[in-house]
Design a protein around this nucleic acid. Structure first.
Length: 490
RNA sequence: CGGGGUGUAGCGUAGCCCGGUAUCGCGCCACAUUUGGGAUGUGGAGGUCGUAGGUUCGAAUCCUGCCACCCCGACCA
C-alpha cells in the first residue's frame, strides 16, 4: 500500500500495529503494557465519550467518581469476583520513597501500608461499599450512576487499544429494588451499546448472552455485543451484567421495602472501553489507512488548497472562509490544511491515512470553473462538482458515507456467519473461512472447554434473537434447542 | 510465567560466522527548482553499536552476567 502502512496480507497483527502508529492514534509508552493515546486518537475517544455520555443521561443516569485505590479486604468479599481478577492486579504496598544516602531513590520500608491497596481492575467493590451508605429505603432506589475512569489489569500480553495494562472506560453501576428492574436495566444498556456500535461506529454487532464459562466474575448473567473484525476474529465490544444480589450480599446492602421487609438490592454493571477504538480500526480500515464513519470523525472534511502564487492563495482563502461559515452553520467539522510546508499529494495521503471521510481539493483551475474536487475516503472515488450548494452536497455525502461504511461492514459480517452441523465442518470452516460459526451445543461448560482446547474457538454468545430449533450438539451429539455463536476471539 | 527471537542515528537496517573504529534507505536542516496524488537536485547535521564486566595491542564483532523489547503459548474489556 504505497508508503502508508504495510500490506494486510503480510500479517494482520503487524498491519494493525503500523496503522495505529502511523495514523497517529497511539504508541507504546515507557511503562510496559501501557500506551500513550496521542491527540488524534484521543479526539476520536472524546467523540465516543460525548455521544455515549449523552445517551447515558437520556436513559436517566448521572456521572460520579470513585477512588482509584481499593483496600484489599473490599476486593475479596465476593468470592468469584476476586477469583476472576486476582491474577492481574497491581498492588500498592508503600506510600513513600527515600534517598538511601548514595544517591539512589528507594522504597522506604518504614512506610509500608498496613493494608495493601489494589489499583482498581473494575470498581464494583469500592462502589458497593459506598452504596451501602446510600441505601436504606426503597425510596432511595434505583441508583443509576456511571463513572468515566481508568482501570488497570496487569495483562501478560498487550496490544494497542485491544488489551493494554491500563485502559480508559466507563462503568455504570446501578442498584434496584427488584430483579426484574435490574434485568431490564442491563438489557437497556446493552441496547444503548448496540445502537452506538451500529449507528455511530458503523460496526455491526450481535447481541447475546455469555455462557457460564465466559461470564463476568461475580455476575449472574452477562449480556454482550460481539463484533467481527476483517481477519475473521471476533471482538467483544461491550458488556452489561445482571449481578443479582451477589454484591449486595457481599457488602451487606439492604433496603426496607414498601412492605417493611429488609431485602438485598439488585444490581447491574456495564462498560465499554478504549477497546472500541480497536474495533473501529479493525472493522473498517483498508490498505490506505483508517476509515472513520462521519458521525465519529473529529474532522469530517479536510480542505486542501492547491496554488502556485500568493495571489492564488489569497483568492482560495477568501472562498474557503465563506465555505467554512456554511459548514459551521451545519455543524460539519472541518480542517483547512493550508500548510505551505507540504505538497498537496502528501496531504491527500496523510488525511487518507487518518481516515477523514471527505476531502475537498481546490485550485486556480477550480476557481475559474466554479468547481471543487470531492474525494470520498470510503469508496476512494473523486468527482468534480459545482461550488453552488456545496455545503448541502457535503452534508448529504457525509450521511451516505456513514451508511455505506455500515453496509459494507454488515455485508462482510453476514457473509461470515456460517451455520455448521458437524464438528468436522466446524473445524474446516474455522480454518478456511473464520468468522462466526452458528451451531448446536449441549449447554455444558465441559464441551465448551474441550472445543476451545482443540480449536481455540470459544462461544462468543448465545444470540438474543436465536430461534428455537431442535438439533444435536456438534461435539457430543446430545440434544440442543438453539444455536450458539462460536468464533476465535481477541 | 514457559518456549523462541531481537537490541547498531528519530525510524527501518547492513556489518557479527572470519576482531582493525560503522553501511544503506526514510526522516531532519539549508539553498535552488517545484506544487491537480506521498517532489527533485546539491550540500549538511545526527552514533557512549541495550548495559556491566572479561579476553585482546585493538571489540558492534569473541566470552559471561544483567536489562529491555518482540513473537508463540497460558491469561484477558
Amino acid at each position: 500500500m504505497g508508503k502508508g502502512i504495510t500490506s494486510r496480507s503480510e500479517d494482520y497483527s503487524q498491519w494493525y500495529n503500523d496503522l495505529v502508529i502511523k495514523a497517529d492514534l497511539a504508541e507504546y509508552s515507557a511503562v510496559r503494557g501501557c500506551m500513550v493515546i496521542k491527540p488524534y486518537g484521543y479526539a476520536i475517544w472524546e467523540r465516543m465519550q460525548a455521544i455515549l455520555d449523552k445517551r447515558f443521561k437520556e436513559t436517566g443516569h448521572s456521572n460520579a467518581y470513585f477512588p482509584l485505590f481499593i483496600p484489599k479486604s473490599f476486593f475479596s468479599k465476593e468470592a468469584s469476583h476476586v477469583e476472576g481478577f486476582a491474577t492481574e492486579c497491581a498492588v500498592v504496598t508503600h506510600y513513600r520513597l527515600k534517598n538511601d544516602g548514595q544517591g539512589n531513590i528507594v522504597v522506604d520500608e518504614d512506610a509500608k501500608l498496613e493494608e495493601e491497596l489494589i489499583v482498581r481492575p473494575t470498581s464494583e467493590t469500592i462502589i458497593w461499599n459506598t452504596y451501602k451508605g446510600w441505601i436504606e429505603s426503597y425510596r432511595d432506589l434505583p441508583i443509576l450512576v456511571n463513572q468515566w475512569a481508568n482501570v488497570v489489569r496487569w495483562e501478560m500480553r498487550t496490544r494497542l487499544f485491544l488489551r493494554t495494562a491500563e485502559f480508559l472506560w466507563q462503568e455504570g453501576h446501578t442498584a434496584h429494588a427488584t430483579a426484574e428492574e435490574a434485568i431490564e436495566e442491563a438489557k437497556t444498556m446493552l441496547d444503548v451499546y448496540a445502537e452506538f456500535a451500529e449507528g455511530t461506529l458503523a460496526v455491526p454487532v450481535v447481541r447475546g448472552r455469555k455462557t457460564e464459562n465466559e461470564r463476568f466474575a461475580g455476575a449472574v448473567d452477562t449480556y454482550c455485543i460481539e463484533a467481527l473484525m476483517q481477519d475473521g476474529k471476533a471482538l467483544q465490544a461491550g458488556t452489561s451484567h445482571f449481578l443479582g444480589q451477589n454484591f449486595a450480599k457481599a457488602f451487606d446492602v439492604k433496603f426496607t421495602s414498601k412492605e417493611g421487609k429488609q431485602e438485598h438490592v439488585w444490581a447491574t454493571s456495564w462498560g465499554v472501553s478504549t477497546r472500541l477504538m480497536g474495533a473501529l480500526i479493525m472493522a473498517h480500515s483498508d490498505d490506505q489507512g483508517l476509515v472513520l464513519p462521519p458521525k465519529l470523525a473529529p474532522i469530517q472534511v479536510v480542505i486542501v488548497p492547491i496554488y502556485k502564487t500568493e495571489e492564488e492563495k489569497v483568492q482560495l482563502d477568501a472562498y474557503v472562509n465563506a465555505l467554512t461559515e456554511e459548514f459551521k452553520a451545519k455543524e460539519i467539522s472541518f480542517k483547512y490544511d493550508d500548510r505551505d510546508t507540504q505538497r498537496p499529494g502528501f496531504k491527500f495521503a496523510e488525511w487518507e491515512l487518518k481516515g477523514v471521510p471527505l476531502r475537498i481539493a481546490l485550485g486556480a483551475r477550480d476557481m475559474q470553473n466554479g468547481t471543487v474536487e470531492l474525494a470520498r475516503r470510503d469508496t476512494q472515488t473523486k468527482e468534480t462538482v459545482n461550488q453552488a450548494g456545496l455545503s448541502d452536497k457535503v452534508e448529504k455525502l457525509l450521511a451516505d458515507i456513514q451508511e455505506n461504511i455500515f453496509e459494507k461492514a454488515l455485508t462482510y459480517r453476514d457473509e461470515h456467519i456460517t451455520e455448521v452441523n458437524s464438528y468436522d465442518e466446524f473445524k474446516e470452516m474455522l480454518e478456511s473461512k473464520g468468522g462466526f460459526l452458528l451451531c448446536h451445543w449441549d449447554g455444558t461448560v465441559e464441551t465448551e472447554k474441550r472445543v476451545k482446547e482443540e480449536t481455540k474457538a470459544t462461544i462468543r454468545c448465545v444470540p438474543l434473537d436465536a430461534k428455537q430449533e431442535e438439533g444435536v450438539c456438534i461435539f457430543t451429539g446430545k440434544p440442543s434447542s438453539q444455536r450458539v455463536l462460536f468464533a476465535k476471539a481477541y
